[in-house]
Amino acid sequence: MEFLAGGRAEVRITRADVGKRVSVRRRTGGAAGEAAFTDAVGVLTSWDEGVLSITRRTGECVRIAESSLVAAKVVPAAPARRKVPAATVRELQQVAARGWPAIETERLGEWTLRASGGFTRRANSVLPLGDPGLPLDAALERIVQWYGARGLPPVIVVATGRAGDDEELAAELDRRGWTAERHTRILISALAPLADTATDTPPGSTGDAPTRVTLSREPGAEWLALYNRTGGSGAPSTEAMTVLTGGPSVWFATVRGADGGTAAIGRLVVDGRWAGFAAIEVAPAERRQGLATLVTAALAQRALDEGASAAYLQVEADNADALALYDRLGFTDHHGYHYRRARPAGES
């Protein structure tokens, strides 16, 4: 990789370049047989107290001491892909889990037990990727005990509707009386076209899209007031805040209305090539002005700037309005999932 400028290496990045794609070389040698320098390319996600954090396209975060820098420069982002990405069910399950991380996890073979004080089913359910390492009945008994000790209902995520799903597991759970609930669709899209929709404001919308949407790393009080899982119920729990702000690179979008109130919000998590969208909500009095589209576009541009190329989101299968919006934006159906909940003890 070429760092030379005018015949010598230079560090040509500053803290003002946080959020840009950079290429850096750092000094790592010293021991016999050790490479003198190591290179890294990715998004400069922070530069605090003498340490740079660079997030690679894979989602890996590399921390680099400022004192070890030998050369660095901003590099152009890779050309945005516009085709709907190819992905397996397992890949999307893993990406979605990292983007909405549980506070407490425990492995059961290749399954992961997750708990977060009851904040959302996604962060309080078993993710079954492969073999639990035990006969199914023994694994289910362990799951019931684990969740019971935390005062939570035993719940397992079951993927459906595509090769590599959990159809066999669903049948086994059905035979054992684990009830199905909360059917959800996983939608995907190329990322670049979503950013383009910033210019497609419908009749009646006002303001300039890029300047109306404010992005931040933390959800402020205005954002939380509109978020339907915490709004109107006082300060959010520690568990809710931990899950909301967890993930490789998380952003929160807020749009202010003409009256100064919160008109719309959204959440983004960037993880390698994937950008996950969630909590796209518009205040009732501000609907039908294209604000959900503006929020999605602003977040999509942020994800493109960090090197992502594909988008995903999760929406409940009976949310017709949201499904219609995402269809207009160009999302396509990938697969579905639902939750299986153990029948309470003593219930026939």
Rank of each mutant, 00 (worst) to 15 (best):
E181P: 00
A308T: 06
T245A: 15
S53N: 03
V270E: 11
Q93L: 14
A77G: 15
H335E: 07
L136V: 11
E347K: 09
R121A: 15
L134V: 00
T296W: 01
T214S: 14
V270I: 14
Y312I: 04
G336P: 05
A31G: 14
R121G: 13
T293C: 11
G234V: 09
E218Y: 07
L325T: 00
L191Y: 10
A258W: 02
G19N: 07
G346K: 09
H335S: 11
T88R: 12
A190Q: 03
E66W: 12
R302Y: 02
A253N: 12
A240S: 14
Q145S: 10
T332P: 05
R8W: 08
W111Q: 04
A308F: 08
A300V: 07
E141P: 00
G161P: 09
V41G: 06
L304V: 05
T262F: 12
L244G: 14
A123V: 05
G109D: 04
A310T: 09
G42Y: 04
E239V: 00
I186L: 12
A192K: 01
A16S: 15
T201E: 03
P210L: 05
E286N: 02
S216T: 14
G330E: 02
N124S: 11
A303G: 05
A139K: 03
L224V: 03
F252Y: 13
E66Y: 08
L69C: 09
L92P: 05
G30P: 08
N319D: 10
E222D: 15
W111R: 01
A192G: 02
L92E: 06
D271S: 08
V269R: 13
A159F: 04
P202V: 13
T211R: 15
K83T: 14
F252K: 09
S233L: 07
A149C: 11
R288N: 03
A71F: 04
A86C: 02
L113Q: 08
T254A: 08
A35L: 13
A278Q: 12
V295Q: 01
G133H: 02
R12S: 13
S233Y: 11
A278F: 15
L325I: 12
A32M: 09
N124Y: 05
A297R: 03
R15W: 03
A96L: 15
V24G: 08
V250T: 15
N319E: 10
E222I: 00
E172C: 10
S125M: 04
